[in-house]
Design a protein around this nucleic acid. Structure first.
Lengths: 138, 138
DNA sequence: TGCGTGGCTTGCAAAAAGCAAGTAACAAGC
DNA sequence: GCTTGTTACTTGCTTTTTGCAAGCCACGCA
């Protein structure tokens, strides 16, 4: 018989507390950074990889899938050959902007040598530079 | 010679982004739950252990030490025999209330079956029940 | 036909989390 | 003074997650 495996974060809710439940979903080093990038207007896999924190590719793929099943991001094809998808925030995900804003404010006020740019107060500071091969739209 | 160990979260800052730096400090499943408990007025080691999420004791001890060195909590003796300490938020830590509030608001709005009680909107709902042995003060 | 590009997946080692048990310092009761 | 109980940790070990590098696949273009 299957050995009794330990409860894992993806399957187990630790308590009904809204903070705990939110952290079950978002509480790690990478997830909120991806959402920061989405708020900055990034949409493609490769764009997330260019952020200075250098998220590993497997973690990025896993987190995007997790956020999609959680209804925080949506994944839509923007071309067919080869199949490519754009990731965007759902309304549910977009409301995390308030969390990112307060977190950035706290960090800027209390952590030394943090840059002024913040995910929510800043708009898209520069267009993300079109992919080198725009590829014919379907 | 020492083999080149992997950069670890406690030693490495991933970028100067205030969000990333905040997450280097707070980005895990437990840290913000401890701060939630502190905002609820909990101060003693044993009180944190009674929260429904059931944080493992070694993780609690390690996080409290980390938060103390980060200047987010302070640890002060409240009796001498046996030596006991009370953990409280510094002003820097207390400002995380805004983060917890927005996180709880988001969770209550978007995650099913989360309880209404939130760390910041609620005051201390009940006195934490004095320790069984109040122990003579020094 | 062969390269380059974007988007993932896989394998494996290192780090962190999780669980149970142990330890220490004392108070109180017998 | 010996045992029991309480609080606050620490230690040892297993499981899970992270991080890094490499591989793979579908295509566009030369």
């Amino acid at each position: 018989m299957a050995r009794p495996t330990r409860p894992t974060r993806s399957t187990t809710r630790r308590s009904p507390c809204p903070v705990a439940c939110s952290l079950d979903l978002l509480g790690d080093r990478w997830t909120l950074l991806i959402i920061r990038d989405l708020l900055w207007g990034k949409t493609r896999y490769g764009e997330f990889l260019t952020s200075p924190e250098a998220i590993p590719t497997n973690i990025l793929a896993e987190r995007l899938a997790r956020l999609e099943t959680a209804g925080i991001v949506q994944r839509e094809p923007y071309q067919q050959n080869p199949p490519r998808h754009a990731y965007t925030l759902t309304p549910k995900g977009a409301e995390l902007k308030a969390v990112l804003t307060t977190l950035a404010t706290w960090g800027r006020r209390h952590l030394p040598d943090t840059a002024a740019k913040s995910p929510a107060t800043a708009g898209k500071p520069e267009p993300p530079a079109a992919p080198k091969k725009p590829a014919k739209r379907s």
